[in-house]
Simulated scan of single mutants.
Amino acid sequence: MLDVHIDDFYKDCGAILLLGFRQFPRPQTLFIEDISGPDDVDEFGLHSPRHQAAFGAVLWLRDEEFIRFSAMDGQKSVDDFVLTSKAFSRLLKPNPAQDDGNILEVIEYARLQGDSLLLGQILRDHFLFL
């Protein structure tokens, strides 16, 4: 069993990729709360650990060249967010476990079902370890 923060990382990456696909190729503003849920900043103005983790997933996907964006509004959002061709092509790649499905459909299904094991497996197989 993986640590909870790794499960959250997979959920965040799945959400980010799906949000990017739904508007592709149109750049959009990506709000971190759309990934992590509502955020409460503390008395020092720091975001919750859950919010910071979702923001970290956005940065990681950018560093791995799956997404791009032009600017950050602190840790609240990123502007001109769009998938790269690398992410877009991997999402449309046929799913070897299905004859007529693709990776995007599996990610969406796993998120809707709350199946973190399937979500983690599909992200590891098609985005993390290539």
Rank of each mutant, 00 (worst) to 15 (best):
56 G>W: 03
58 V>N: 02
58 V>H: 00
59 L>P: 00
61 L>Q: 00
61 L>W: 01
63 D>C: 02
64 E>C: 00
64 E>M: 06
65 E>W: 02
65 E>T: 06
65 E>H: 10
65 E>K: 11
65 E>Y: 04
66 F>G: 00
67 I>T: 08
68 R>W: 05
69 F>C: 01
70 S>I: 02
71 A>D: 12
71 A>H: 06
71 A>W: 01
71 A>C: 05
72 M>P: 00
73 D>S: 10
74 G>K: 06
74 G>N: 11
76 K>F: 07
76 K>I: 09
77 S>H: 06
78 V>I: 05
78 V>M: 02
78 V>P: 00
80 D>W: 00
82 V>K: 01
83 L>E: 07
84 T>R: 04
86 K>G: 04
86 K>H: 13
86 K>I: 07
87 A>Q: 03
87 A>P: 03
87 A>M: 03
88 F>K: 09
89 S>L: 14
90 R>E: 11
90 R>S: 09
91 L>V: 08
92 L>Q: 15
92 L>T: 08
92 L>S: 12
92 L>H: 14
96 P>C: 06
96 P>F: 13
96 P>I: 11
98 Q>L: 14
98 Q>W: 13
98 Q>C: 13
98 Q>N: 14
99 D>H: 08
99 D>W: 08
100 D>L: 12
100 D>C: 09
101 G>P: 07
102 N>S: 10
103 I>R: 03
104 L>G: 01
104 L>Q: 13
105 E>Y: 04
105 E>F: 07
106 V>I: 15
107 I>H: 07
110 A>V: 06
111 R>Q: 15
111 R>D: 12
111 R>H: 12
113 Q>H: 10
114 G>L: 03
115 D>H: 02
116 S>E: 08
117 L>V: 13
